[in-house]
Simulated scan of single mutants.
Amino acid sequence: MKIVFRVDASTQIGTGHVMRCLTLADALSEAGAGCYFIYREHEGHLGALIEQRGHQALALPLQACKPDETPADSLAHAAWLGASQQEDARECALLLQTLQPDWLIVDHYALDRVWESQLRPYCRQLMVIDDLADRQHDCDLLLDQTYGRDTQDYIDWVPSHCELLCGSMYALLRPEFTHWREYSLARRKDARLQNILINLGGVDKGNVTGQVLDALHSCSLPSDCAITVVMGATAPWINEVKKHAKTMPWPTQVKVGVSNMAELMANSDLAIGAAGSTSWERCCLGLPTLMLVLAENQEMIANRLSSQGACTFLKVDNLNTSIHHLLSNFVPESLTRMTLECLHVTDGGGAKRIIQHLGLSI
């Protein structure tokens, strides 16, 4: 089976879309499929990482993209594409003619039915990965891994024959999270605040990481506390954050482009993180989280997980006060409560469930 992904990463888009597609591609590859990624060469693209993971990366050059006039009814995220949908589809069609994939999988807020319909003749079946439920799609299968998402949210946006996979039971997590789950949950039976993990996504273009470190600096944390900051290799504030880490009252290390995220999460007692796709990773491992919304599409995730009790929702514009208040009044029982609620969200088996719908199994 041959699978082609159309997905982008950039300093504006972030890395989450590519990372979740890579998780699915890794599972498909293990099941015997060949995976190809079509991406545009935005600043902060992850073409090298895609190839490092053993998949073929096919670039659409930025300099070749001269968008048509933006229509009045263009999508909310149209500017993220770097071309018009029609131009992007034409460029992709040239590649797909040769590849002739069994599945074309698209994960992009700037693409909808206009693009999908144009590429229908070049693939056997088409899958969409989304979490907005805000535009029309022409697809055979749609995945939205958001906790609490209902198939009714997409009924008016997809063809009648489209199969809908909705909810966090389908969350795309790498196998390492399932591997570390039992260990992670076992060590949380003795709740404590000794290791804090900070991860504000792969890019964090606004340097919210620095604001979090500022807020923690004035908190009364245990004397034996240690802080770990994880950043993506394309994050623009890495050097500033490293300098900031050296001024912290507790040992604070900054890790860049890690390959053992599940292990780091499993050995952390509290995370301060964004409400993106890493939310499902933290829930799988029962990791209590102070959650921040760094993009509009993250609000639904944060609100639903907070209502469930699986995290505590913080606002970026009130970080110093809110973090100081929460940690000054910290009790171990609050960590235990969050861990228990996380267990209702996902078990880490989403990738296996999805590839069965694509006609493969592992």
Rank of each mutant, 00 (worst) to 15 (best):
M1P: 12
M1H: 01
I3C: 14
F5C: 09
R6A: 05
D8A: 10
D8G: 10
G16R: 01
S29Q: 12
E30H: 13
G34N: 12
C35D: 03
F37V: 08
F37E: 04
R40G: 10
E41I: 03
E43S: 13
G44T: 08
H45E: 13
G47F: 03
A48M: 05
L49H: 11
L49W: 06
I50L: 03
E51C: 08
Q52T: 12
H55V: 11
L60D: 14
L60T: 12
Q63C: 10
C65W: 00
K66C: 12
P67E: 02
T70Q: 12
P71M: 07
A72Q: 15
D73V: 09
S74F: 02
S74G: 00
L75N: 06
A76F: 01
H77T: 07
A83R: 04
A83S: 14
Q86A: 15
D88M: 00
E91T: 08
C92H: 03
P101T: 09
W103P: 09
L104Q: 06
D107R: 10
A110D: 10
R113K: 12
Q118V: 07
D130I: 11
Q136G: 05
C139K: 09
L141W: 09
R149F: 08
R149A: 15
T151Q: 15
Q152F: 10
Y154C: 05
C162E: 03
C162Y: 07
C162T: 15
L164S: 04
L164F: 08
Y170T: 10
Y170C: 08
Y170R: 06
A171T: 09
A171D: 05
L172R: 12
L172P: 12
P175N: 04
P175H: 01
F177M: 05
R181S: 00
E182G: 01
A186I: 01
R188C: 04
R188I: 06
L193C: 02
N195D: 14
I198D: 03
G206Y: 11
V208G: 02
T209N: 02
V212E: 09
C219D: 05
S220M: 10
G232V: 06
P236D: 13
E240V: 13
K242M: 14
T247K: 13
V258H: 01
N260M: 01
M261I: 12
A262P: 01
E263T: 02
E263A: 12
N267A: 01
S268V: 08
S268N: 06
A274C: 07
G276C: 10
S277H: 11
W280K: 06
C284N: 08
G286P: 05
L290Y: 04
V293C: 14
L294G: 14
A295T: 09
Q298N: 05
R304K: 13
S306P: 01
G309V: 04
A310M: 08
F313L: 11
V316Y: 00
L319P: 11
N320A: 09
T321R: 06
H324G: 02
H324M: 03
H325M: 10
V331K: 14
E333N: 12
S334I: 13
R337Y: 15
M338L: 12
L340M: 15
E341D: 13
E341A: 15
G348K: 03
G350R: 10
R353C: 02
L358H: 02
G359C: 13
